[in-house]
Amino acid sequence: MINTIIFDFGNVFINLNEAYTLDYIKHFESSKHYTDIIETNIQFEKGEISKDSFLSKYQSYFPILSKEEIISKWNSILDEFPKYRLDFLKDLKKNSNYKLILLSNTNELHISWIKDNIPFYEDFKSCFDEFYLSHKIQLRKPDKDIFNFILNKNNLKAETCLFIDDNKDNILTADDLNLNTWHLNPKKEDIVDLFKIKSALF
């Protein structure tokens, strides 16, 4: 019996810009600093380096870019947050007894952009019983540590949790730990159809 639902953020609630992602891969994979860039991104998402340190590192990789240009490019992955998904979540919060948890790989710059551009961010946040951002808890998917942290912190049994994410690696780790999972395909599926698509679990 499912009593806890653990949601990802990007491509589950807020849309991500696929064109940006493809451009990012093409641009940075061709860089001689590619390995360093990936490590810097991970450190930033785990809160191991500050925003200023992150920007300084990127300026060393791409001296032609100003800090403002780096921030703009970095945040361009973030797209719209359809209001109907918030409505779905608010209804779920009001009319069910599920424990609702957000678990997102993110960073200071992205959250700052979201706060500035998504007017209902605080309403969204208030729908969750627990709200975990990777750079705040210094843990990151798909590492097992972050899932064990959530389970232990909230006294949860993996078998009673449903984890929803669009990233296959994150899903595989959750599967290994015996959580129920939904590998959501944002091109074909929507979180508001949760109880239709995963009806067998409920």
Rank of each mutant, 00 (worst) to 15 (best):
K46N: 15
K196E: 13
N154K: 08
S60Y: 05
A158C: 14
L179G: 08
C161T: 08
I197T: 15
Y34M: 07
F131W: 05
R140K: 14
E48H: 09
K90V: 05
C127I: 04
T106Y: 06
K198R: 11
D190Y: 05
N185S: 07
F131K: 01
F44C: 05
L55Y: 01
K115D: 06
L102D: 02
L65Y: 12
P119K: 00
K51G: 02
E80N: 15
L151S: 08
L133R: 03
D23T: 10
S76K: 07
D116M: 12
I197K: 08
N95L: 02
S66D: 03
C161I: 09
K46L: 01
E29R: 13
I114A: 10
D165Q: 12
S31E: 04
F81S: 12
D52S: 12
I2P: 02
F131T: 00
D175N: 15
A19Q: 12
D52P: 08
E68S: 09
P119Y: 01
L86P: 04
F9E: 11
K168E: 13
K83Q: 14
K187N: 14
L172I: 08
L100P: 01
A200Q: 14
D87W: 09
I6Y: 05
A158W: 07
L172S: 13
C161G: 12
L86M: 04
E68Q: 14
L201R: 05
L162P: 05
N97F: 11
E45M: 11
P82Y: 01
I37L: 14
